[in-house]
Amino acid sequence: MKVDASNPLWRFRGITSTAMFFFAYLYLPIVVLIALSFNENRLATIWTGFTTDWYLVALSNDDMLRAAQNSLVVAVSATVIATIAATLAAMGMTRGRFRGENGVSAMLVLPLLVPEIVTAIATLLFFVAIGIKLGLLTIIVAHTVFCIPFAYLPIRARLEGMDPSLAEAANDLYANEWQAFKRVTLPLLWPGILSGAMLSFIISLDDFVISYFVGGAGATTLPIYIFGMIRIGITPEVNAISAMMLLVSIIFVSVSFLIDRIRY
């Protein structure tokens, strides 16, 4: 590691051990979880030997696969709807100023700050009050709401960094509004859109609290299924499923990060 001597923090002797402790605190549990997913013993906490059987068990577990499928349906639907809404919102917020702009801007990202349990209960009560049957649809609606700010922020950042005369130049060169959007704005915006979409997808895939409240019986997503398994007892199968989810998350977040770094 290249050490920047101008940073006075580096003169603090305990810096290395402090940092190591910090990272261990963050990642050790995850490392243990992954290691134990290869444990031969039925009891997840006692190591007896290496095996990949638990992955096979997990992948042939129909209930688990059904839950994973539900999660995918929810995540994909919520991501698509949230990303489209976020793109439109970002375009609206960037073009021209209007009264109350700051307020609208704050409202857009407010779901990030509201305690999830509050959102979950409020959404549940709302669905019950208007008489919608709880199920996958209600989960999708609820997920769409909290995915919007995650999709909105990277798209907005992209748009802010874009020269407004680019769209004008397209108009000037005989492209109507739609053609200008399709040929100039969208291609320049897509890294932001994709990055926002991937973030939304992961957030939706991981969500437990809101899904648990508004899902009702029958609409079991993967996190809810895992929670159910743990209540019966932790087997390495749970570890294997969790490790696979982690892998998916890491892939998506990395791709999202790399895409967002695309610059022209």
Binding site: S165, L166, N171, Y174
Partner: peptide, 27 residues
Amino acid sequence: PFKRPINTVFQSYALFPHLTVRQNITF
């Protein structure tokens, strides 16, 4: 603007960064 036979050279040039020079000119 897209119906006026008038073209503009912008102060920032506003060249389309995702297109080649030729694609910019043929736009």
